Computed example of a mutant assay.
Amino acid sequence: MAPLRSTFGDEILRENEVAGELQAARAALVPAEVDRYRRLCREVAALMSTVLAGVRPDDTERQVAARLAGGLVALGADPLVVLAAGRDRLSYRHPLPTTGPIGAVAMVVVCARRQGLIANVTRWIRFTPATAEEEDVQRRLFEVEHAFFAATRPGAVLSDVFAAGTAAYAEQGFAADEWTRHHQGGPTGYNGRDPRAGASADGLVVSHQAFAWNPNVPGAKVEDTVLVGNGDPEVLSVAADWPTLTVSGLARPLVREQ
C-alpha cells in the first residue's frame, strides 16, 4: 500500500508504523459487522455441510476442494484457503489438495472472505465407523479447545490465553509439545488470524471480538469462528444438520459418518 500523507502536515505515515493501532481498532466488531459475520459464517458452514454430503470415497481431494471453492464464489465470498486431506494424508496439518482419493476419512478446511470478514471452518467426514481410540482422541481434543475458550474472556492477555490452551494438551494426555507442530489460531475478523496467537502476543481480548482457535493432533482437528462475549463464546459457523457433541455447554462439530 502506498504511504498516506498526514492531513496535519508533510509527515508520511506508513501502515506498518500503526499496525498495532489498526489491529486494536478493528478488534471489537460493531453490530453491523457482527450481523454480516453471522450470515457469512452460517452460509459457509451450510455450504460445507451440503458439499460434503455429496462426497464419496473415490472423489479426489482436488475435486472436493474445487466444489467448495466454486460454492464459496457463488456465495460472493473469496476462497482464501481451501484444504483437503483424505485418509492417506491426515498426518499433514496444512494439507494442500492433491489428486489422491478421499478414502474412508477426510478433513476439509475453509477460510472464506466476504465484505472483508473471514469465516474459518474445519469439518471431518468418514465412511467407516470410528474406533474407540479415534473417538477418545476427538473427545480429548474438544477439552483442549474448551481450555482455549474458557480463557478467552474480555480483558485477558492473548499470551495468557495461548498458555492456558497449549497447557491443556498435556493435561488431556497428548504430547506436551503437540501445539508446536501447527499454529493454534487466535483472533480473526479482517485477517485470517489477527494476529496469530503465541507466547509473545501482548494484545488484550475485547468484547465482540472474533476468534478462531484450531487445536489439532494427528488425525483430529477442530475449528470454528466464534464471537467473544461475557460468557461462553457464540459459535458463528453453525449448520443445523451437522452432528454435534455438547462440551461444557457448547455444541461442537463431530466427525460426520455418511
Rank of each mutant, 00 (worst) to 15 (best):
G186V: 05
D194H: 01
A176G: 09
A164I: 06
F162G: 00
A170H: 07
L158S: 15
A163G: 06
G189K: 03
A167N: 03
A167Q: 14
D194E: 04
T152F: 06
Q184D: 12
T166D: 00
S159L: 02
A197F: 01
V144N: 06
R193P: 05
G192D: 15
V157W: 02
V161Y: 10
G185V: 00
N191F: 14
V157T: 10
F148V: 00
E145N: 15
G185M: 02
R153L: 14
P195F: 01
A168S: 08
R153P: 00
D194Y: 02
P195V: 05
R153I: 13
G173T: 13
T166M: 10
V144A: 02
A175T: 11
G189V: 05
H183P: 06
Y169G: 03
T166N: 04
E178G: 05
P187H: 04
A175V: 12
F174V: 02
D202A: 15
T166A: 01
Q184K: 13
D194T: 04
G165D: 00
T188N: 13
G155L: 07
Y190G: 01
A151K: 02
A197E: 04
Y190R: 13
A163L: 05
G203D: 15
G189M: 11
A170I: 11
A199I: 10
A170C: 07
A164K: 04
P195H: 03
S159Q: 15
F148R: 12
R153S: 09
G165A: 07
R181E: 03
A175C: 06
G186P: 01
F162T: 02
V161I: 07
E171R: 14
A199F: 04
A168Q: 03
A199Y: 08
E178S: 10
N191D: 12
S200V: 15
R193C: 08
A170L: 13
P195I: 04
T166G: 00
D194C: 11
S200K: 15
Q172R: 09
A176P: 09
N191M: 10
N191Y: 14
N191I: 08
D160I: 05
F162P: 04
A175H: 05
A164E: 04
L204W: 12
H183R: 10
T188I: 11
F162R: 10
A170Y: 09
A176F: 07
P187R: 14
A176N: 07
D160A: 14
G186W: 11
A170K: 09
A201F: 12
A201L: 06
A164H: 12
Q172W: 08
A175Y: 09
P187C: 11
R181Y: 09
A150C: 03
S200E: 14
L204Y: 11
R181D: 12
Q184S: 07
